[in-house]
């Protein structure tokens, strides 16, 4: 896959920002908007997987939806295959949409309970008017059902008859039926049993290698991210903290937050217990309506200094395609 990285990027997201207006009405003073996603930039090549990790409420799902314009971004640009997706309208927008899809977290809420499996998978084809006849459409649906491992007998069944793992396969079939080049996977396995998780992850990897799709893979589980990603982006309170290739990030975490996250992965080996030191973060996630000044992480950081509360650290390249937003990343790195 690495040879793909040199080509022009498939997706180029720059300075993406999404603000949600918060509780304003006639009777209350207008309060500050919630900065769900603040100044996020990244690029994604064809066939590549970007893992996005962070704790609940850090804006990773909002970021994924803003890239697809399911939530209109407040500012920033999303260049997809050389065209600005945020400015596309009408026919062009519809055309571009056929190339980007999403897989949802909740396999129970993401399938229309009044449609059969066949209708659900065929819906994108019908919206995009891909085929002229019902026969061609049906053939394509059965083909995709076979690819994701769904028995063709299920064509006329309703989603409530299926287990979580099978429902997620239906969701995956719907996402790949148009043959997209980008799929946003919004925590696609976190609602599933552990035994089913690996099946679905392996299916996603297998589909990627056969169809050459790029994934934005959102998850709060570092082990899942480690399994599937090529590159990893760590988010905190709507900001990118660190981004690097997977091996580099897991070997040399250079942001205090990433180190804290990595230290929280439970290790099964007994001997590692002596070396393994958990970094416990103090306090709760601050409100995104009122983010801390300077570095957003400084209120919970164990390395914070005076400069952290006044000056916002920029995302710096520390070599090897490794970007970190921390004033003390060198110190953090050298600590081990």
């Amino acid at each position: 896959m690495s040879e793909n990285f040199d080509k022009a990027p498939l997706l180029e997201v720059s300075h993406l920002r999404k603000l949600f207006p918060s509780g304003s009405s006639v009777f209350s003073r207008k309060s500050a908007p919630i900065k769900a996603v603040d100044d996020v930039s990244f690029t994604l090549s064809a066939g590549e997987t970007l893992g996005v990790v962070g704790e609940s409420g850090c804006g990773k799902s909002t970021m994924g939806r803003a890239v697809l314009r399911l939530i209109e971004p407040t500012s920033g640009s999303v260049i997809f295959k050389g065209k600005d997706f945020t400015k596309a309208t009408g026919q062009e927008l519809r055309q571009m949409r056929s190339d980007m899809q999403i897989i949802f977290q909740d396999p129970y809420a993401s399938l229309n309970p009044r449609m059969t499996v066949g209708e659900i998978i065929a819906e994108p084809l019908e919206i995009q008017k891909r085929y002229k006849t019902k026969e061609e459409e049906r053939k394509r649906v059965l083909e995709v059902m076979d690819v994701v491992g769904l028995n063709p007998k299920y064509y006329n069944r309703y989603p409530h008859e299926f287990s979580g793992g099978q429902r997620q396969r239906i969701g995956i079939a719907r996402a790949i039926v148009l043959g997209p080049s980008l799929v946003v996977c919004d925590e696609p396995v976190s609602a599933l049993d552990v035994s089913i998780q690996s099946q679905v992850l392996n299916l996603l990897r297998q589909l990627q290698s056969s169809m050459g799709m790029a994934y934005i893979f959102i998850s709060h589980s570092l082990s899942v991210i480690k399994h599937i990603s090529d590159r990893v982006m760590v988010m905190y309170l709507g900001h990118v903290m660190e981004t690097a290739d997977k091996e580099e990030l897991f070997a040399n975490p250079s942001h205090p937050y990433t180190r804290a996250l990595l230290s929280a992965i439970p290790l099964p080996e007994r001997h590692s217990k002596e070396k393994h030191q958990r970094i416990i973060l103090q306090g709760d996630l601050p409100s995104p309506a009122d983010p801390p000044s300077g570095c957003v992480f400084h209120t919970r950081c164990y390395m914070a200094d005076a400069i952290c509360s006044t000056e916002k650290p920029e995302l710096r390249d520390i070599g090897n395609g490794h970007f970190v937003a921390c004033h003390f990343c060198e110190k953090c790195r050298g600590k081990e």
Binding site: R65, L68, L70, L93, R94, Q95, R97, S98, M100, Q101, I102, F104, Q105, D106, A109, S110, L111, N112, I120, E123, P124, I127, Q128, G171, R174, L178
Partner: peptide, 16 residues
């Protein structure tokens, strides 16, 4: 609901 979002992602019109 997410299945409505799924239709939107595929480019469905409001009428659809």
């Amino acid at each position: 609901k997410e299945y409505i979002e799924a239709s939107k992602v595929s480019g469905a019109s409001t009428y659809w």
